[in-house]
């Protein structure tokens, strides 16, 4: 319930108007949204019980390593069952396969639709979504870690919360099934990072400073 309360309200996209190139405009709109989501995510992480008591170095490591996964949980969740198989980055930013391809995000599209279909088949509850998001951050396999014991305790606490929730619903196998969806999330996040770095480096798409700093940390 703490994680549900901490979850920020979804953002709206601000349509870019700096260019006539439609696919570039899509990318710029998306990058602006991601940058603002990233800012919110950092504030959100600080409210997860246990996160702020980690050392600053570990807080930075977990965020640098897990931010994209944590953001994509929300995208996959919102994209479930969307008409036309779109990716719902925001209520007013829905991209279909052709738009993603034109924007250089074809691989990301495939991975995220796969994840959205998986979430849909599992009928995730809001409680499960927020817990998966926190686990994506805690389980990001950040390296190096300053205090492995504290990070482990943080992970254990989230795992316990998930197990308590599932046993209250008498769903014996659910926690395990949710954890088994994490590799697909990591794969999607890897593709997203590569796609945005490629857009920046090869197509000279300008990125906001925070977004670029976080992408560089994963490069």
């Amino acid at each position: 319930s703490h994680l549900l309360l901490t979850e920020p309200a979804p953002l709206e996209a601000n349509q870019d108007e700096s260019t006539d190139d439609g696919s570039l405009r899509t990318v710029l709109t998306l990058c602006d949204l991601l940058n603002r989501e990233l800012l919110l995510l950092i504030g959100w992480a600080k409210q997860i019980p246990g996160f702020s008591s980690l050392s600053l170095v570990d807080q930075m490591s977990l965020l640098q390593s897990g931010w994209m996964e944590a953001l994509l949980v929300g995208v996959a969740w919102r994209s479930q069952g969307s008409a036309g198989e779109e990716l719902v980055f925001a209520d007013n930013l829905r991209l279909d396969a052709a738009q993603c391809r034109a924007a250089g995000l074809a691989e990301l599209y495939e991975a995220l639709r796969h994840l959205a279909a998986k979430y849909q088949a599992m009928e995730l509850s809001p409680e499960e979504v927020v817990t998966l998001k926190a686990m994506a951050l805690a389980n990001s396999d950040a390296e190096p870690v300053d205090c492995p014991d504290s990070v482990q305790r943080f992970q254990d606490w989230l795992h316990e919360a998930l197990q308590d929730y599932e046993s209250s619903r008498r769903e014996q196998h659910r926690a395990g099934r949710l954890l088994m969806s994490l590799p697909l999330l990591r794969q999607a996040a890897g593709r997203a990072v590569q796609a945005f770095l490629r857009l920046h480096r090869h197509r000279s798409v300008p990125l906001h400073k925070l977004l670029l700093e976080m992408l560089d940390a994963k490069a």
Partner: peptide
């Protein structure tokens, strides 16, 4: 750490 100065600053802010 210098390379990650925005994240560093955001985490140090108390809000």
């Amino acid at each position: 750490k210098e390379k990650h100065k925005i994240l560093h600053r955001l985490l140090q802010n108390s809000t």
